[in-house]
Design a protein around this nucleic acid. Structure first.
Lengths: 247, 247
DNA sequence: CGTTGGGTTGATCGACCTCAATAAAAGTGG
DNA sequence: CCACTTTTATTGAGGTCGATCAACCCAACG
């Protein structure tokens, strides 16, 4: 379960908000992909002063559902799972956070879901209140925040289609294509897709059991559409997987 | 299929943007529930000038997925279904719009879904560009827009839990409780729930077939938890339905 | 008064779940 | 570095929930 993010972000990552000012933000590899990409240089300095670095090991929790949301986060390296638990233990993963992803878009009083790290993870952490004040004073940042939230919403709606109206094989194919697209934004290569989450996590994201996920992956591998590798898959026949995923 | 909204909004509804200025907005029954509730009186006048009334019969379409989004809407009466279609005809309803709901929160270039009226419907229609300019100049309105989008996002995530991890009976119960909550915001009474959509629509919202929806409703009715009435259901045992829905 | 769209009900089928066994990795402590 | 445990993944056999297929009812409506 080592460190996928490193495997896909060549040189060692310089964290956004370490000790001294926005020098770090300027070197931040995910800045252009995140909210920070919308900031002016002076705003970057201001935001940097609000942030403090967060480093987590795999499995450590960032926050829990229904708790007061004291912080918001910008993931700089590693990945996390975002999920809701039902009282009886059933779990629905509502998303996976990758480098550049912002957690806490909604700025609501309480967290809508729990989040914990899938791999060692680093993030810029902000006090929700301080961050909220920061964006309130800057319409174009608020606008960007809203754009990000809109994008999240449309991803959630797409996931509703997958959950409600697709077969197990289509779900897994759509998942792979979706992850491919997201990793492609972060690194150039896109044939080998890191899967930092377990089969159980994938199942809880797609509304399937572990076994079904495993079977579908095995089937795709048997058909030479993918190759299962440690901590990921290699897409051998992207067209084929896309055609399964699209319908 | 007549007119539910009237049945649940006692006196005849005065539309928001008819002919003369914000007098109408001030009389608008859903104003406080919608984006307009966040506006100052002078802003209300300004927005009113941007709007034009839209009246649709049942089944008429408001807009279609992937089309350029020329307009945004604020529903003032009636209801609509929002859905995505797969190439092979499978359909996922991503939400139902009720009076007070805003369509076009994301302000994106293209529509993420199609929308058509379930009942006769009235709405305030705005040019997307004009509306976008309007909110851009008013941070507190943008903030409100973002709050509404955040709420949508959290509803979408809740729906992901329902779609991915709940049984047919739980889905139907959760649907009824959800509709109860939404109607309760619009009218006082909340035991008789209007269901302007067909069983097929409910199925396409919950990831079920018509038959299963019908069977689950029949079962709940047989158990005296609900009473099926024309164009809706009466909740006889709210506690019971909630307990099914919660887990 | 036939037609049509929506709703209900029954019988059967199958996709996915459940349960179980095994294998393969990844820790963990000596 | 090696036992030992724990976690994760795979595979099979059998069961079940919801889908499919089909019949029928009913109200609306031209």
């Amino acid at each position: 379960m080592a460190s996928h993010s490193e495997a896909h972000s060549a040189p060692p990552l310089t964290l956004c908000p370490n000790a001294k000012a926005a020098v770090h933000c300027e070197q931040c590899r995910v800045r252009s992909l995140s909210l920070c990409g919308a900031l002016e240089p002076d705003e970057l300095v201001e935001l940097d002063r609000l942030s403090r670095p967060l480093t987590l090991s795999a499995r450590e929790t960032m926050f829990e559902q229904d708790e007061l949301a004291h912080s918001v986060f910008n993931v700089t390296a590693g990945s996390a799972r975002l999920y809701r638990l039902l009282p009886d233990g059933r779990r629905q993963i509502v998303g996976f956070a990758l480098p550049g992803d912002f957690l806490g878009l909604s700025l609501t009083e309480r967290n809508a879901f729990s989040a914990d790290a899938l791999t060692p993870l680093t993030a810029c952490q902000f006090s929700r209140q301080a961050f909220s004040d920061f964006v309130d004073a800057k319409p174009h940042v608020l606008r960007k925040l809203h754009q990000l939230a809109s994008h999240e919403l449309s991803m959630a709606q797409e996931q509703m289609v997958i959950l409600g109206r697709r077969t197990a094989e289509e779900k897994v194919a759509a998942f792979l294509i979706g992850m491919r697209l997201r990793w492609a934004r972060l690194s150039q290569q896109s044939v080998t897709i890191p899967l930092p989450m377990t089969r159980q996590d994938i199942g809880d994201f797609l509304g399937l059991t572990v076994e079904t996920v495993s079977r579908m992956l095995t089937r795709l591998a048997r058909e030479k559409a993918i190759l299962i590798v440690p901590d990921g898959v290699r897409l051998l026949d992207v067209k084929r997987i896309e055609s399964i995923a699209e319908s």
